[in-house]
Each structure stands twice: as C-alpha cells, then as structure tokens.
Amino acid sequence: MTSSERRPAAGGLVWFDEPAPPRATEQLSRERIVAAAVELADDQVPGEITMRALAARLGVRSPMALYRYVGSKDGLVDLMTDQVYGRITVPRGEGWRPALRGLGRTGWDAVRQHPWFARLAFARPPMGPNALRLYEAALAELAPLGLDATTRMGFVKTVLGHVLGSGLALLEEETMRARVGLPEDSDLEAAVAPYMERIAAAGEHPHFVGWASDPQRLAPEPQSFEQVLEWLLDGLATLVPEAGGGASD
C-alpha cells in the first residue's frame, strides 16, 4: 500500500490524514467547512453541531461530501479547536510571567468568544500547528529558568487548565441558563429567592447567608479570572530558582 493510499485509524488525527483533502471548489474547501463549523457552534449555546446541520449551512445535500475534506467528525474537531488555539498568544522576550499572563488572558478571551472550545479542547490531543506553536512559544519563555521539562510543561498546563476549566464553567452556566430560561443574573436571583428565604429562616448556614445577602459581595468580583490567574502565577513563582527568575511582572 502506498503512502497516498493510507488512511488513519478510527479517531486518528486529521494532521496526518492521507491522502490530502481534495482541491477546493466554489462551494467546499477545508477552510470553508471549518469556518462554517465554528460559526455554527458559536450559534448553539452548548456548541454541539452535527455534520448534517453543517452540510445544510454550506448548502450541501449530503454530509458525506464534507468527510472528503475533514476525514471524520474527530477530524473536524481537530481543525475547529486548532483554529481557536490560533487566537491565543504568548508575549515573547518579556519574561516567563508576562508570557504566561498573556497566554491566560488571550486564552480567556478565546473561550468567552467560543465557549465550546473549552469542551472540545479536552476531547482531542493538541497536535495542530497553532497548538504546537503556542506550546513552543510558552516553553521557550520558560527555558531560561533552568527548570526541568516536566516542571516547565506543568507551568503551561496550570495556566491552560485555568483557562479551560473556567471556560467549561462558563459553557455549563450558559447552557443551564438557556435551558431553564434565566438569561440574566436578576432572573437567576429571583428564581432562587424562595429557597434562600428558607435557608435563612432555618438558621443552619449563617455564614453563607451573610455572604449571599451582602450587596457588595461581587463589587468587584473577588475571584475574577484575572485575579485567580495572578494567584496561580504567584504560586508558580515559588518554584522559580532565584538566579533564573528573569522578568516577573
């Protein structure tokens, strides 16, 4: 069997698919399919799409036509997630902490624009070109610290874990709000008000009730994404040898 006849195993990464996708037509190309898939996922609160819905958006009669360009549904996920990885940036030449801070902040911007990314990023290995460039840039900024490879990757995963974990929480909350029809914070507060009254009357959780009834509890939000990111960076800084600290702010 020649290299041009090989096919990846089920669930194989799209980056190593052979043969290459067919030449673009006026209606279809890998780029057009991925762009339409991202738009379709953005339009759905949980971010879940089907190949049939994607084909309809592209004006294609059969979803099978799409597989020639992306290989499989997993291949489409690979391509979609890597496109979002391309929106995340690592500042270069300013030191390890600004690099990871930039990674975290642009990652948070990306998941707020594409909440489904936080779920799909856990579903497939980050082996696309944009993901690899991201990891390479972050690891390069950590290299001067003299830390071992496992610890350096641990720094990167700590920040990305905060990005994706926060993104998953955002996705689940938005999905819940859409499902039960409580889009605004005021709607949610009104819905839980009867339960809060019962909890307060029972008197078993005075500290929680005190927090929940404090009108200043979210002014400003004490555990914003940015604040938690700084706490994480403070913790990582304790692992940095003094001689290799470099720029830290």
Results as ranks from 00 to 15, higher is better:
Ser4Lys: 13
Glu5Asp: 12
Arg6Ala: 07
Arg6Thr: 03
Pro8Gln: 10
Gly12Gln: 07
Trp15Glu: 13
Phe16Pro: 08
Asp17Lys: 10
Glu18Pro: 05
Glu18Arg: 15
Glu26Ala: 15
Ser29His: 07
Arg32Lys: 15
Arg32Ala: 15
Val34Pro: 01
Ala35Trp: 11
Leu40Ser: 01
Leu40Gln: 10
Asp42His: 08
Met51Pro: 04
Arg52Val: 09
Arg52Cys: 09
Ala55Ile: 04
Ala56Lys: 06
Arg57Ala: 01
Gly59Val: 05
Arg61Asn: 10
Ser62Tyr: 09
Pro63Thr: 05
Tyr67Ser: 02
Ser72Pro: 02
Lys73His: 05
Gly75Ile: 02
Leu76Glu: 04
Leu79Ser: 06
Met80Tyr: 12
Thr81His: 12
Asp82Thr: 02
Gln83Trp: 14
Val84Met: 10
Val84Lys: 06
Tyr85Gln: 04
Thr89Leu: 14
Thr89Lys: 15
Val90Ile: 12
Pro91Glu: 08
Arg92Val: 12
Gly93His: 11
Gly93Arg: 05
Trp96Asn: 08
Pro98Ile: 00
Ala99Lys: 01
Ala99Val: 05
Leu100Gln: 06
Arg101Ser: 08
Gly102Asp: 11
Gly104Met: 01
Thr106Leu: 09
Val111Asp: 03
His114Ala: 10
Pro115Asn: 03
Arg119Pro: 01
Leu120Met: 14
Ala121Gln: 13
Pro125Met: 01
Pro125Ile: 05
Pro129Asn: 03
Pro129Glu: 15
Ala131Lys: 08
Ala131Asn: 07
Leu132Tyr: 04
Leu132His: 09
Leu132Met: 12
Leu132Ser: 08
Arg133Val: 07
Leu134Phe: 02
Leu134Asn: 00
Leu134Ser: 09
Tyr135Asn: 13
Ala140Gln: 13
Ala140Gly: 06
Glu141Tyr: 13
Pro144Gln: 08
Leu145Gly: 10
Gly146Met: 09
Gly154Asp: 02
Lys157Asn: 15
Val163Asn: 02
Val163Met: 01
Leu170Trp: 13
Leu171Ser: 00
Glu174Ala: 14
Thr175Cys: 04
Ala178Trp: 08
Arg179Met: 13
Val180Leu: 01
Glu184Ser: 12
Ser186Cys: 03
Ser186Met: 10
Asp187Trp: 02
Ala190Tyr: 04
Ala191Phe: 00
Met196Leu: 15
Ala200Gly: 11
Ala201Val: 01
Glu204Cys: 05
His205Ala: 14
His207Val: 14
Val209Cys: 00
Gly210Thr: 00
Ala212Ser: 08
Ala212Gln: 07
Asp214Phe: 06
Gln216Arg: 13
Gln216Asn: 12
Gln223Asn: 14
Gln223Tyr: 12
Ser224Asn: 01
Gln227Leu: 00
Val228Asp: 07
Trp231Lys: 08
Trp231Gly: 02
Leu232Ala: 08
Gly235Gln: 09
Gly235Asn: 06
Leu236Ala: 01
Ala237Val: 01
Leu239Met: 11
Leu239Val: 04
Leu239Pro: 11
Gly244Ile: 10
Gly245Phe: 11
Gly246Phe: 12
Gly246Gln: 04
Asp249Tyr: 07
Asp249Gly: 03
Asp249Asn: 12
